[in-house]
Design a protein around this nucleic acid. Sequence first.
DNA 1: AAAGATAATATGCATGCACATATTAACGTG
DNA 2: CACGTTAATATGTGCATGCATATTATCTTT
Lengths: 233, 233
Amino acid sequence: MTLTDTNSWTGIREELLRRIHDRIWEPGSQIPHEADLAEEFGCARTTVNRALRDLAESGLVIRKRRAGTRVALNPPQRATLTIPIIREEVEALGKTYQHSLLERACQPVPPILHGVFHASLGEDVVYLKTLHFADDRPYAFEERHINLKAVPEARARKFEVSSANEWLVHNAPYSRGELSFSALNASDETAQILDCTPGTALFSMERITWMGEEPITHVKLIFAPGYRMHSVI
Amino acid sequence: MTLTDTNSWTGIREELLRRIHDRIWEPGSQIPHEADLAEEFGCARTTVNRALRDLAESGLVIRKRRAGTRVALNPPQRATLTIPIIREEVEALGKTYQHSLLERACQPVPPILHGVFHASLGEDVVYLKTLHFADDRPYAFEERHINLKAVPEARARKFEVSSANEWLVHNAPYSRGELSFSALNASDETAQILDCTPGTALFSMERITWMGEEPITHVKLIFAPGYRMHSVI
DNA sequence: AAAGATAATATGCATGCACATATTAACGTG
DNA sequence: CACGTTAATATGTGCATGCATATTATCTTT
């Protein structure tokens, strides 16, 4: 018998987890509905609901109205990725961080969204080109658009002393974001900027962030050769 | 102006979000407590709680008992990455998945860990080279080592019908793993395998998984040109 | 004044209930 | 039989309330 406290929603979640792991409820099969589980555990349906909602959030079960709750067939493998602030990342390597603003434009430069994200930052944007250094060596090349409708204060900022990234982190919080990673061959321009030979495979990260329904900023980072991104499961 | 329905917890969340973004509540500052907000919005405290919990989960506010709720100083730098099973990923594109085993060896081939991960799979391993297809086009090239000490059943498996990945997912659960992403130029061999020109920038993912202290498997995936990995914050 | 006990407070959680909503099943009707 | 309509049902959400728990402030006691 399990010693889990079945009166707390976490306890119920553990018990449900156990049943899924022990294949008492097989992948793809339907599990009893909330009311039955509540009766079995001797708790309110709300409590079971909380536990099931949590499991659904982690992707272990699929819930649909009327259709009931099913054990996910292939539980998605999730990893948590920590997106570092470049300065911190460089300093963690024991190197000195520097950055230089290559370009700053307010005229509407068409955002280079490449169709990666389904969003537009609108017409009124700041466009920034920044190069990040680690010990005088180029570390990453950044292209950024900032939506001035969402962050009007950015119009006056020069972003020469503090980088746009850090300023935005502290001044324009976002509620959600999307990330996209890819590999690309260094163009002549980026090769020159990052001090490598054209054609070198480079790791690239694109990110777009929103506050509610309003896009805040779009960044495309191209890292110098050899960059690796790590994550733990 | 959007007339947010302040009677639903999502509506309240939007309004709270707006206040954070508009700096009505500055980063680091305390926001009114649940009871006050409930009264202001004319709803139950439970509903405000739901909204605040959601914001706390996304990392935008920090909540502590008695201490109250504060706007986060450093908004989230975490993203959850869902690592797809290649077959599902391909099928989600509306394409037909296929894979073919290029090589299978049991003799101790030195694992190509490249010093990325600090681990060794030991001497007794299966080495697999698999090519994954999407509609007859190469999709990803996989090199894998399986630790036979941890998964002895793998010695007898041929991995011709079901891919090693899916077999392991369902038969060798792991407790933790490490991931590493990088970009690399296609070698002559990988270019031939993936049907692209040598030198093309390719996205690569390496993963090692453990059960407890025992490494289970190490995979290196090299994706065909144009691959992108997505993630949400 | 320092240390410990105690009270106050904000969030966390559980309950019982009601109603909303999405989805499926059953049922007619042409 | 194919179709639209209606009913049944499981989850989703809101509310009022009470108690639990962590943390801080305050009040003792020595």
